[in-house]
Nucleic acid binder design. Sequence first.
DNA 1: TGATCCCTTTGGAACGTTCCAGTCCTGCGG
DNA 2: CCGCAGGACTGGAACGTTCCAAAGGGATCA
Lengths: 343, 343
Amino acid sequence: MTRSLGRIPAPPPTLADVAERAGVSRQTVSNAVNNPDLLRTDTLARVQEAIEELGYSPNRAARNLRTRASHLIGMRINPAQEGTANATMDRFVHSLVETSGEAGYHVLLFAGSHLDPLDGYDDLLRSTAVDAFVVTDTYLGNPQAAWLELRRAPFVAFGRPWDNPDATHPWVDVDGAAGADLATTHLLDRGHQRIAWIGWRKDSRIGEDRRSGWSRALRSRDLPTTGLASRVEDTVASGREASAVLLDEARPSAFVCASDTLAMGVLHTLAERGLAPGRDIAVVGFDDSQVAQVVPPGLTSVRQPLEDVAVEIVKALEGLLGHPHRTSEGVLLTPTLAVRGSS
Amino acid sequence: MTRSLGRIPAPPPTLADVAERAGVSRQTVSNAVNNPDLLRTDTLARVQEAIEELGYSPNRAARNLRTRASHLIGMRINPAQEGTANATMDRFVHSLVETSGEAGYHVLLFAGSHLDPLDGYDDLLRSTAVDAFVVTDTYLGNPQAAWLELRRAPFVAFGRPWDNPDATHPWVDVDGAAGADLATTHLLDRGHQRIAWIGWRKDSRIGEDRRSGWSRALRSRDLPTTGLASRVEDTVASGREASAVLLDEARPSAFVCASDTLAMGVLHTLAERGLAPGRDIAVVGFDDSQVAQVVPPGLTSVRQPLEDVAVEIVKALEGLLGHPHRTSEGVLLTPTLAVRGSS
DNA sequence: TGATCCCTTTGGAACGTTCCAGTCCTGCGG
DNA sequence: CCGCAGGACTGGAACGTTCCAAAGGGATCA
């Protein structure tokens, strides 16, 4: 093996190199890559052979400069926080990377200041570093979406524009109410009558949406909801406290929670009281995190179809980048239930 | 608010626009951005004002083309798999994004075929889409590292080059043996004498490294290890079975596991037998995943300093990209122990 | 035979930046 | 008074691609 020490690696071949080798012009090589059907078949074969031999791949920077497109999708990830919320986003990022990769796009991740929800977007946008954004966490009052819309920047939101009925951007979301309904109905079918809800504070749109699925399911069987609901912070400690109070005061036989984090809190309370989840008290969580999958005896949980979300988002992005002024409808997907030992 | 419907958004301002507005040449604006100390202070101020007014940001594609650098770091993420292994990588990605962002780099994620560990690298490299790679999962026999090294592509590995003592690339890793030692010593200090190990199959270098920390700690106190170790797949089910067998045959009072996944398996066994983790049997996991943090009563776990790993990796990258032919040493970091209810 | 059309291929220009080799100007020493 | 050095700024060229207008060469038709 020859390994010339310290030698500067040869620069990658360019269009011109391929053209010379194949005995055609630059433009013909470019066409061979981008519009193969413009070439005569024998010319195409000759060019492709030269491309193969030289290991040619179009220089991205040059292509980006000329076409004013980067084939990059920007997504901001948020500082780590307690609980299982991050895990859902991480799962989504995986799906997004795979799906957009198949569509010829790469995902560029960036971080932003904890304080400024817009930090990072502006620079990437003005320097035309990305073609579009995927915006998450639309529940924060959604300043990114409004800001991006104002700048006419292409983006797709994972999450409904809760606070902005005039929003015209495409979005994809998961039907939280349907998920909670699914979970509650599952418990009803197992014979439970008193099913408690532990959810997030009232100002969380997502939390209220999920909660509505719980109450809808109970009311559809003429069962009461009064005294059976609690709204707290999304932490294990809050879930533990809330479930302890509910057990004492409302005597439920099952819990439906707005997150796996809260459901873990319930499991803490059960463990403290020597109650067995699934046998003595049923528990259902939300998001189907790793935690739900591995905690004994398995936590039944509502699973968001994040793979499908990614597919729909990439579809919307392709539409957006192909037809710049198309107004896209929102897409609402239905979650499923992963049933485990806790119910 | 004026909002001209359907109008094509104005193209972003260029160097020339700024130059005209400030009454200087393109090059002077370029210098104002990249080498401010070359300008007279009054000129600099005038240019900066023009930049501000126009909202100018250098076009990335043009800059990349000219400087042959993209300020992007490529990282391949692997298809989701069972267990908590992914969670660690996700945590690392977060840290990497934040750290590299501070150094002026963005992270480009890409997926590759499940079958071909090299899939994706080649194209990004030849098209000069990224400046460097961060390679993870070096335990697979590490074909990426060897391949990249052969191509003289800049990269830093998260993980030691176990199989290749000749490797000259920079790497950063966490001392797994020290972590397991830490965990075991912690249990010894709490009075445990018979401490079992549940780890991975013998062909896992990482697994054997961690295991060596356990046996080292026991031997340093002249305690036996015979019959106390088990090597299995990294799944909850395997952990459960292994711990059941060990409890019956070796009667340990504590378990140290090579992963939180395996530790959760132990918790399953304990739950089945009515044993309380932490009170009846102590359990320590590895990786400090979400699971460890929220499962009752809290799982003591070895925590990898991933934030520090990211910092060291970015340092190495900067060195690599600044001085192309520097041979960098490896960096080995020491993990910490997150003590919780299970011990 | 010449005009017309279409298919294939071509060369120049442009995308927006930075590199490079200057030019201009001011101040200083001889 | 002249020559020279060095600081501040400039204009052309180049990075590698795609767009665009046009040229070459058959084939078809009058």
